[in-house]
C-alpha cells in the first residue's frame, strides 16, 4: 500500500499545483449554488417540504459531481501517456493495480473535499427547515458513490485514450450511456424493462439516495460498477505492455 500512497500523494500535489483543481472546485460550487437558489429554494410558488428541497439539491449536485468526476479523471493516465511519464511507473516495481487504485483514490479525495464544500447548502435547509441527519448522510453517500462510479469510468477512458480530450469524450459517452439505460428500457418489454432500468446509473438508483432511502442493492450496484471499471483500467494498463 506504500506505492498506492506514493501515487495518491503525487496526484494530489498535481491537482493543487494546477488550475484544474481550483477551476473544478469553483465550477462545482458556483453551479451547485445557482441550482440551490433557483431549483431547490425557488422555481415554484408552492410550499414544499424541507425534504423535497433537500432531494432537489441532491439531484443537482449529482449532476455536477458526475461532470466533476469526468474532469478530474480524464487526465489520470492519458496525461501521463501524453507527457511520457507513464513509462516511469511502468518500469518501476509497482503493480498496475496500485497505479489504478492510487489514481482513483486521489480523485476521490479531491471529489470528497469539493463535495464537502457544498455542505453549507443542506445545512441551511436543516437550520431553517426540518430534515433528518440521516437523509443528509444518505444523500451525500449517493453523491459519493455516483462520483466513485463515474471516476472509475473516467479512469478507464483515460487508460484507453492517448490524450485528455479523447479521454474526456470517451468518459462522457460512457457515462451518458450508463445514464440512458432507462430510456432504452422504455422501448423494451418486461422482464427486460426492469433489468435495463436497474442498469441505469442515475434514474432509480439515485432517486432513492436523494430521498434519503438507503438500499443495499443500490450500494452494491455502485460498488460493482466502480470495481468493474477499475478492473478494466488495470487490464487496459496490462494490455499496454504488449504494445
Amino acid at each position: 500500500m506504500n506505492n498506492v500512497g506514493l501515487i495518491v500523494g503525487r496526484e494530489l500535489k498535481a491537482y493543487v499545483r494546477s488550475p484544474l483543481g481550483y477551476a473544478a472546485a469553483a465550477g462545482v460550487l458556483l453551479i451547485d449554488g445557482i441550482w440551490f437558489m433557483a431549483k431547490a429554494l425557488g422555481g415554484t410558488t408552492e410550499k414544499r417540504l424541507s425534504a423535497q428541497v433537500l432531494a432537489e439539491f441532491f439531484n443537482g449536485a449529482s449532476g455536477t459531481t458526475a461532470v466533476l468526476a469526468i474532469a478530474l479523471a480524464m487526465r489520470l493516465v492519458a496525461a501521463e501517456h501524453d507527457a511520457g511519464t507513464l513509462v516511469l511507473l511502468k518500469t518501476s516495481p509497482i503493480r498496475d493495480w496500485e497505479i489504478v487504485l492510487g489514481k482513483f483514490l486521489s480523485v476521490m479525495l479531491v471529489l470528497l473535499a469539493i463535495t464537502a464544500m457544498t455542505a453549507y447548502m443542506p445545512l441551511l435547509i436543516m437550520k431553517n427547515g426540518k430534515v433528518s441527519g440521516g437523509h443528509l448522510l444518505v444523500g451525500y453517500a449517493g453523491i459519493v458513490l455516483l462520483g466513485a462510479s463515474v471516476t472509475a469510468m473516467g479512469l478507464f477512458a483515460s487508460a484507453l485514450a492517448k490524450n485528455q480530450v479523447v479521454a474526456a469524450i470517451l468518459a462522457a459517452v460512457l457515462t451518458g450511456a450508463m445514464y440512458l439505460w432507462w430510456l432504452v428500457a422504455k422501448i423494451a418489454d418486461p422482464p427486460v424493462t426492469e433489468f435495463l432500468e436497474g442498469l441505469a446509473i442515475h434514474h432509480l438508483r439515485m432517486r432513492d439516495f436523494m430521498t434519503g432511502v438507503l438500499r443495499l442493492e443500490n450500494v452494491v450496484y455502485y460498488v460493482a460498477v466502480s470495481f468493474f471499471f477499475l478492473l478494466a483500467s488495470v487490464k487496459t494498463l496490462e494490455a499496454r505492455r504488449w504494445r
Partner: peptide
C-alpha cells in the same frame, strides 16, 4: 531507464 523523452513531471 531513460527513454528518448525523459519521464518528468513538470510541476
Amino acid at each position: 531507464y531513460l527513454p528518448d523523452r525523459p519521464p518528468l513531471y513538470g510541476e
